[in-house]
Design a protein around this nucleic acid. Sequence first.
DNA 1: GACATGACTGAAATCGATTACATGGATTTC
DNA 2: GAAATCCATGTAATCGATTTCAGTCATGTC
Lengths: 331, 331
Amino acid sequence: MASLQEVAQRAKVSIATVSRVLNKSDKVVPETRAIVEQALRELGYRPSRVARRLRMKDGRAHLVGLIIPDIQNPFYAEIARGVEDAAYAAEYALLLCNSDENPEKERFYLDVMLSESVDGIVLPPFDDTDAAVIEMAATGMPVVCVDRSMAKLKTDLVEVDNHRGAFEAVSHLLDKGHKHIGLIEGRSQVSTSRERRRGYLDALAERGITVRKELMRAGDFKQESGRILANELLALRKPPTALFVCNNLMTVGALATIHQRGLRVPQDVAIVGFDDLPWAEALDPPLTVVRQPAYEVGRQAMELLLKRIMDPDRAPVTVRLLPELVTRSST
Amino acid sequence: MASLQEVAQRAKVSIATVSRVLNKSDKVVPETRAIVEQALRELGYRPSRVARRLRMKDGRAHLVGLIIPDIQNPFYAEIARGVEDAAYAAEYALLLCNSDENPEKERFYLDVMLSESVDGIVLPPFDDTDAAVIEMAATGMPVVCVDRSMAKLKTDLVEVDNHRGAFEAVSHLLDKGHKHIGLIEGRSQVSTSRERRRGYLDALAERGITVRKELMRAGDFKQESGRILANELLALRKPPTALFVCNNLMTVGALATIHQRGLRVPQDVAIVGFDDLPWAEALDPPLTVVRQPAYEVGRQAMELLLKRIMDPDRAPVTVRLLPELVTRSST
DNA sequence: GACATGACTGAAATCGATTACATGGATTTC
DNA sequence: GAAATCCATGTAATCGATTTCAGTCATGTC
């Protein structure tokens, strides 16, 4: 509430001096400093980040934006925690937004962030060619992509080796003797989807298994589509004996279908999901999954962002983290 | 990037006129308006929310804060979605922070929000007497409490009837014939904990069941404490045959203990949790829980906040929503 | 003792918007 | 036809900070 003006009046100095005391910069004679600090305390002064941000150009707002599809998805919640913890450690605040995989919402929030003069933005782009993100980067705003990469845009990026994760998951199913493995993947415009599909195909190819096209279905990353697609797959005349589902929500959906059809896991159908869940252990059955180090993805993304804010001209970096197959009882 | 100044220059008018065009206020002659709009478009002008916020006093920042203990807790994630959706609908952006049930973090973020001149704040207070929240409200900042209430502070509040939820949960266990029901509750400085405990005690009293003090344990809402306390309870010489666990994370923890001890649910021990989980259905076994309308809590809190921003002098309102016992297979 | 040096501090510009007030030309009114 | 009125627009103050530049006073140097 109290402004620099008021503090200056009370301390009988100019606002410049108060500002200097606050920024611990320059030399203010100890007596003056004491008087000012006294006034500061008495008035319970708090600087206005808004005024400060208006004056200072670029990179000192101590505010960054994070746009994720859905905070209710544990994978993104974990990323968000990683970003937030790293931000908090550096005393940055976080503007968090849910895009719902909806380009319009994404655009709205990107506008807000530009308009709020955030120091930088972390986000998984909507798809390969996300125009809004390209424009944003073109303004010079620091952008760090997480999880998903973009074809035409060179930014800092923290991603997971999706091909490897998928390859291991499918190989694991093959090891268990499965020959008909259903794939439930996400939107194909998203880099992770393509990499996981590639991993699936490569694992089959390595063992010389013929691909059955009808076993591959594309969903939209949401629970409902997992439910529906699993149902389609299991209703085939020659249904798969195992399912590889490419994200957490769709896996939960697929599991619902399996239960509903009264199938036993893994005897009747085995299932491997992508993304771990905090309660995967407590599920029926405990789920075998490809675990992504989501917290770490978020944390490192924020650190990259901080580095870029400090030095906007550094060359973009790609950090590629390793997923891990966590074997439980669903396979 | 482009400022009013630049637009004004290009359109050969004053910044006041550009501002008028933007705010659709006053009368600007159509020709002038057209010229300005042209310039606006050509320069891809975006207003600075920062400058705007600095100039305008109170309630027009179109920015609100939300502080929750942990976004990775599905209950709070659901509240957050409710708040966010309502905020987005009103074109408000959201500053989201995790306090980790840590008063220092809470204070840091409250400072940020004051300093960012947000229009208002939604939060579940740390406890009954949360000093930081009291100070915040004292500055005149609109505050809406969710989930938890505060003893000494009269604010808008959206809560759930915790007593009733607990009462129904425990009555349900009693209906099933249980006489020794363990209680795992949260921090007792939090209003919800006390209300749920009261519900537990009242339900027992109604059936004339003697309370066994050693069956009541207080945790900290986190998974680990659920695990530990359940273990303590089940290790008693005369262990409970049913558990009532007062939040979602502790329930998952308790379930882990139960599985680890090789107990069957509900034959060896029944369990009812507070808070539903999106995958409660898929758990082993599907969990009986008291479902809180968390999304609705968040949504209504945001609407109350909007009303208060519009009219700071209206009398504080308390909205009390009803929980619902969802019976699945763990009881 | 005059002048250069340096250490503090203050005055004022600045960031990008909103808005009260001033201005000036056209129109109305008597 | 002069005064009053009105309308569109411009000028300038303002929000609360940071920062440049200038000013003041004491000290050091010869």
